[in-house]
Amino acid sequence: MKKIMDNKKTLVQDMLEGYVKAFSGRVRLLGNHILLRAKEKDLSKTAVIIGNGSGHEPAMIDLVGEGLFDANVCGKIFAAPSPMEMMDALKELSKNGHEEILILVSSHAGDILNAKMTLMLAKAEGIKADMVVLWDDISSAPKGMEQERRGTAGLFFAYKVVCSAAEDGMKMHDLIVLAEKTRDNTRTLSVAIKSGTHPETGLPTFELPEDEIEVGMGVHGEAGTGRMKLPTAKDLTEYMMEQILADKPFISGDKVGVLVNNAGSMTRMELMIIYRHVVRIMEEKGIEIVRNWVGTYVTTQEMAGFSIAVCKMDDEILKYYDYKVDSPLF
C-alpha cells in the first residue's frame, strides 16, 4: 500500500504539527507528542487525559477540546506512550493548577501497565491522579470474564460521556463510577475484510484471503474468533447483532446508542447499508435507538472493516452524550 510521508521516524510528530496548524484555535502541542486544549477549562474541574498509540486517527486526536479530553499523549504507531511521556502531560496540567487528573485507559496490556506506572510516578510527585480501565470487545473474552476484554470502538461512548461530565463539574470519584457504568453498558463486535498497512514497516497488519472475513479482529490486527466466507450485509449484520444483543443482554424496552465505525477504508455506502439492517433488527427486538454515530471514529490505517457498538442509555449517560463539545467529530 502506497502512503504519502516524509520520514518514517517522525511520522507522528509530523502529523501532530500539521494537526495543530489545522486546528490552532482548539489544540496546542507540548513537546512533539502531547496534544492539549488550547483554552484550558476551569482549573477547579477534573482534568481527563488519555494515552494511546498513533495510527488510529481520528482517534484520539479529534477528542481533545472543549467538553472532551484535556490531553492526548500520542505514542508511536500502535504503541502506548511511555510512563514518562504520560507524566509530561500530568505535570503540565498539575503545574497549571488542576487538582485532580483522571486517566482513561483502553484495555490493552501495554496501556494498562504504563498507566499503572504513571500513577506510581504521579504519587511520588504529589500529583493526585487515578485511572479507570475500559473494555467493550465481546470477541476477546467470554461473558463473565469482561475484565479480560479489549478496548475497541465502543469506548467512544465512555470517552464522550466522561469527558463531558468532567466539563460539567463532576469530580473524579463520580467520573470513575460513570465511566464504569457506561463501559458495562456497552458491547462491541468488529469484522475485518482486508488488512491495513503499518506505515513504518510497509507490511500488512495481518493476512486474509480475498473471499474471507475475520470476526472479532482487534484494532491492532489481533486475531478474532474465526473466519468465514464473505456474506451479504444482511447476513453479516444479523450474525453480529445476535451476539452483541445476547451478551449484555439488551432487551425489549431498552433505549440505546448505536455506533457503526469505519475501520479505515469502508465506504459510506457500505456503512449505511449496515446501519439500515441494525435499525431493522432493533425495531424487531423492541429496542429503541435514541442516538447514533455512523462514520469514521477509530481506524487501523486503511483496513477495510467495521465495528458495531451498542450502549444502553439512561438519563445520565444521555445527558452527557448530548453535551456540547468542540470537535470535528461531534
Score class of each variant (00 low, 15 high):
E212A: 02
D315W: 10
D14E: 14
H108V: 05
P249C: 11
V105G: 00
V219N: 01
H198M: 08
V290N: 12
D254S: 12
L245S: 00
M241T: 01
D6H: 13
T186M: 14
G144V: 10
F23R: 07
F330D: 12
R28Y: 02
F69W: 11
Y320R: 14
D14M: 09
R150Y: 12
A246D: 08
E302T: 04
G25W: 02
T188C: 15
N7C: 13
E125C: 01
E99F: 06
V294A: 15
G216I: 04
G264V: 02
R276Y: 06
D247K: 08
K21R: 00
D70M: 13
S307W: 10
T152M: 14
K123V: 03
A115C: 00
H98E: 00
S24V: 03
V298L: 14
Y297T: 02
T118K: 08
N261Q: 12
L329G: 04
E17F: 05
L93A: 06
I281P: 09
A122E: 11
I61G: 10
E284H: 13
P231C: 02
M1F: 00
G264S: 07
I273Q: 12
A79K: 07
D62Q: 08
L155W: 02
Y321G: 01
K116G: 05
I317T: 15
R276L: 11
D6N: 14
D211L: 07
I289T: 10
A166T: 10
D6A: 11
I176H: 14
A263N: 09
E66R: 15
D322H: 15
L36C: 06
E17V: 09
M272S: 11
I308Q: 14
T10F: 13
D6E: 12
